[in-house]
Design a protein around this nucleic acid. Sequence first.
DNA 1: TGACAATAGATGCATCTGCATATAATTCTG
DNA 2: CAGAATTATATGCAGATGCATCTATTGTCA
Lengths: 157, 157
Amino acid sequence: METAPRIPAEEADHDISLCPFVVGAWARLLQVAPTLLATVEAELKQAGLPPTQWYDALAALERAPQEAMAPGEIERHLLLTQCTTSRLIDRLVAEGYALRVVNPDDRRRQIVHLSAAGKTLIARMWPVYAAAIRRHVGRKLAPDDAQALIRILEKLA
Amino acid sequence: METAPRIPAEEADHDISLCPFVVGAWARLLQVAPTLLATVEAELKQAGLPPTQWYDALAALERAPQEAMAPGEIERHLLLTQCTTSRLIDRLVAEGYALRVVNPDDRRRQIVHLSAAGKTLIARMWPVYAAAIRRHVGRKLAPDDAQALIRILEKLA
DNA sequence: TGACAATAGATGCATCTGCATATAATTCTG
DNA sequence: CAGAATTATATGCAGATGCATCTATTGTCA
């Protein structure tokens, strides 16, 4: 989480073009993002709510047509691996927040539907989640900063 | 990893002050940082090298006085939890990259020393690590962007 | 001094992840 | 149409993490 040591001697040999700002940006990015996430996750847990990943998945379902998506779509949408997605869906289904339905036309395929309980959960999570984002991001950034951050991060994506 | 849905109806009720840029910045941050990290980790693994965390820990040791630190210092330095740090040190010691020495004056305390093999590993990892950072960060950002990113991330820290 | 608090670190357990592979269903091909 | 290739999803296993707790050692204070 700290990376970017005071540039060691060998750096000059191998990476003349790696300027300190780049290393610094890398180090900060990898320090700040997980720290913020952990803070927000802790606030959700504190409120007796599941992790942000559950929210992300359920919210993606909510705004999909029919409030349903194929596992593969969820995977691409949340940028998860296939096996992580499969098991995330397992947990959502086990808790009753989503339903798996096998596509009768192609029985390899499934459609994951948001359940009523899932909609309720989203509604319960969002206020807590949003408050945490506001507290830990919104309050610390000027509006221009937030825009600039988005612009720069999009270059990195 | 996607977060920040198209703002659901209930948002207005609970979080009037949470502007879309803030939510967008949060979402991008949590999308981009892990993706970049995974990419860089993959390049290290590809080169037969251990994860960035090992580099971070060993590099921290390298520039500490005597090339040694207490576990608690490493923990604070890398922003890890106590148990994560303990087991990270286990692995480094098991591979011979570091040594645990019990402090004779207070046998609860240890000092973790960088070994010669550890120094070698740092030197082997840095070129690969730096090249990956340059490729995935340096090349994508204008110099001003990198500075701006640092400045904004520091506000969030 | 002797019991209790505090500190540094380790560890058992449950959970989560990735990797590789397995399973099941469908499509392609000769 | 049989057999191979492809696609969608699941799963066994190993490794890493957090949480809570445990052990060992030292400090405190009556």
